[in-house]
Design a protein around this nucleic acid. Structure first.
Lengths: 328, 328
DNA sequence: TATATTTAATAAAACGTTTACAATCCAAAA
DNA sequence: TTTTGGATTGTAAACGTTTTATTAAATATA
C-alpha cells in the first residue's frame, strides 16, 4: 500500500535517484537503455510523482488561481470554463476561487493562493476597493485582470470586451431599426457599464440627438417604475439594457403593461446569457467573445510567468450583435 | 524580496525552528512570551508558510478535487459553488476539474489530482464507464459520488436527490391538476432519469392507469416529432419533462403548434434552472436541494478523510415542487 | 534539601524531489 | 599505447517544513 518514491524506483533499477529524475523530466542525458528500464519499472510499480516535493525544490507549482465574483453567473462560468480548458492543455491546474464579492473571502483566498505558491493569479471582475493588502501581497506573484480593472490595481495587464464598441453597436442598431428615442437602462456603474454608456452616448451623437437625462435610467426595478417612466417619457421607443438580466425583467414588465415588443418598443441586451434565447420574444443582444478573452488571458498569464512583462497593456476584444426578436 | 522561511523567523526570535512551527500550528507547548515574540516577528516580516514543504512533511494538502462534467450547466455550477463554499469554510482549497465528459480529460485530471496528493475527490455525475484505471488509482485517495453513481465505482458513498420521489410528485401533480394521460419525455437514460421514470410509473399505478408505450417518449427533438406524437396520441394532455431543458424546447414546439399551456397541455420540468422562471409561460418544475446535497457531500468527504468509513451509504435528498404557470 | 514532576525548548532527522558537481566509461584520436 | 573528450551516471546538498527524542529549566512534593 505504501507509495513508491523515486528512491524505490532507483533501487529497483540499480541506478541513482538523479538518473530516475532525469528520465522523468526528460532532462539531461541518459542512454536509451536506462530510459527504458526506468520507464518500465515506473509503469509496473504505478509510481506517481509527488508534486509537493517537486514544488518545494523547484519553486514551481503549475497551478493558477482564478478569482471570480460569482461562478453561477453564466458569463463568468463560461469564461472560467474556457480559461480552465486552455490552462489544462498547458498542464496547469486551476484553483477557482468564488469570492462572492466578499472582502473577507478575497483576502482569505489570496492568502491561500500565496501559501500554495501558485504560479499566477487571474482576477476576474474584481471590485477590490480595499486593495491595499491585496496589492502588496501580490508583489511576488504575477497576476492579470479580466473584464474589470480592480480599482487599486495599477499598471497591470487588463483584458476585456470592447464595451464601448458594443454599446455603440447596440444603440446604432436600435436607430437603424427605426427607434427615434432609445434609452439606456443601467443598474450598477462600473468600468464595463461606463464604457457601454459612453458607446450609447456616442451613438446618440452620431444620430444628432442630444443626450438628455431621460435617456438614461437606473431605477426601472419594478413594473410601476417602468410605467411611470414611460408615462413621463412617451417618446422612448427603445431600450438598451446594460445587461441581459436587466433586459429580461424589462421585457417582463413591458409585457405586463401590454406594450408590444418590438413593434412599439425595441430592446437590446448585453452578454447573451442562455436565458436570452429562451425568452418570448427572444432577446437581441450583444455577445461577448469569451473564447477570445480566455485565450488572450491565458496567453498573457504565460507571458507574465515567463517574465515577459506586458504590464500596462490593455486588450479589448470585439463583441458581436446577435439579432433575435426584440428588435425589428 | 526573498521570501522568509521558518529559519529566518527562528533566528530573528532567538529560538529554534521547532518552536516557531509549534507556535504557527498552535501545537505542543510554549510560553505566552515566546508565542507573542514569534507572532510579532511573523507579522512584521510578512512571513508566509510554504504549503509545499508542509505537505511534503505531513502528507496533507488541505485540497479537494471536484470532477464535474460541465461547469456551465447551472445545476452543476450551483452545486459546485455551494460545495466550494463549505470546503472553504473548513480551510480547504478546491480544484475544480471540468471533464467535458471526455475520457482523456478525466484520466488526466485524476492523474493531476493524485500527483497533487489531494486529500479527497468529489465526483459529480461521472459517466466513467472506462473506470478501471480510475478505480485502481483511487485506491489511496478517498472519494465520494454525487448525483450519479459512476458505473464502475462500487461500494462508495453516494449522494443525490431523491429522483424517484421527485418523479412521483411531478406526475401526481399533473394528475391532481386534471391531466388524465400524462406522458414522460426523456432524452438520456441514466441513474437519475431511471429513478424519475420509476416515480412516473408509480404515479400511474397510483391512479390506476396502465403504463403504455405511448406514455414515454424519447425523441421529441423537433417540432415535427411533437406534432406527429400528438396526432398519434391525442389523449396526451400533460408532459413530465425529465429535465428543464427538455421542457423548454417542448414548450417552444407546443407554442408553435398553437397548443395552449397549461389549458390543453400541462408541463412540468425537473431541476429549476434559472431560465425556467423566465419563460413564457413560467415553468412548473421540481427543484433540487443543492444546498443540502452540498452539505451532505462535504460532510461525507470529511468523514472519509477522517477514516470514518461510510462506504455503501446512500443519501437521498428530498426535492421540492415549484408551482408556476405551466400547470393549472 | 533532595527528588519527582511538569513545562519549555532544542537538535536533528525526515518527507521526495532536483541539480551542481564529480566521477566513470568508452570510443576515437594521437 | 596513451590521451582526450563526450556521454552517461552518481553523490550529496538543498528546498521549508514537522516531529521525535532529548535536554534543560522551573516547579511541586516529600
Amino acid at each position: 500500500m505504501k507509495q513508491y518514491s523515486i528512491k524505490d524506483i532507483a533501487k529497483l533499477c540499480n541506478v541513482s535517484t538523479a538518473t530516475v529524475s532525469r528520465v522523468i523530466n526528460n532532462n539531461g542525458r541518459f542512454s536509451e537503455e536506462t530510459k527504458n528500464k526506468v520507464l518500465e519499472v515506473i509503469n509496473q510499480t504505478g509510481y506517481m510523482i509527488d508534486d509537493s516535493a517537486r514544488s518545494l525544490r523547484t519553486n514551481v507549482t503549475y497551478t493558477i488561481g482564478i478569482l471570480v465574483p460569482d461562478i453561477k453567473n453564466p458569463f463568468f462560468a463560461d469564461l472560467v470554463q474556457k480559461i480552465e480548458e486552455l490552462l489544462f492543455s498547458k498542464n496547469y491546474s486551476t484553483i477557482i476561487c468564488n469570492t462572492d464579492k466578499n472582502e473577507k473571502k478575497e483576502q482569505a483566498y489570496l492568502h491561500m493562493l500565496e501559501n500554495k505558491k501558485v504560479d499566477g493569479i487571474i482576477v476576474i471582475s474584481g471590485s477590490y476597493q480595499h486593495g491595499f493588502k491585496f496589492q502588496s501581497s501580490l508583489k511576488e506573484i504575477p497576476y492579470i485582470c479580466i473584464d474589470r480593472e480592480p480599482e487599486n490595481f495599477h499598471n497591470t495587464v487588463f483584458i476585456s470586451s470592447n464595451h464601448y464598441q458594443g454599446g455603440l453597436d447596440a444603440t446604432n442598431y436600435l436607430f437603424n431599426r427605426g427607434s427615434q428615442f432609445p434609452a439606456i437602462v443601467v443598474k450598477k456603474i462600473n468600468s464595463s457599464t461606463k464604457s457601454r454608456i459612453a458607446g450609447f452616448k456616442e451613438a446618440l451623437k452620431n444620430h444628432q440627438v442630444k443626450f438628455l437625462k431621460s435617456h438614461q435610467e437606473l431605477k426601472l426595478t419594478n413594473k410601476n417604475a417602468v410605467k411611470k417612466f414611460l408615462a413621463k417619457n412617451p417618446q422612448v421607443d427603445g431600450f438598451f439594457a446594460a445587461d441581459d438580466n436587466i433586459a429580461i425583467s424589462l421585457i417582463q414588465y413591458l409585457k405586463e403593461l401590454n406594450y408590444q415588443i418590438p413593434k412599439q418598443i425595441q430592446i437590446i441586451g448585453f452578454d447573451d446569457i442562455p436565458a436570452a434565447n429562451v425568452l418570448t420574444p427572444k432577446l437581441t443582444t450583444i455577445q461577448q467573445n469569451t473564447k477570445k478573452i480566455a485565450q488572450t488571458a491565458v496567453n498573457s498569464m504565460m507571458n507574465a510567468i515567463n517574465k515577459q512583462n506586458e504590464k500596462g497593456s490593455q486588450f479589448l476584444i470585439p463583441t458581436k450583435l446577435i439579432n433575435r426578436e426584440t428588435t425589428r
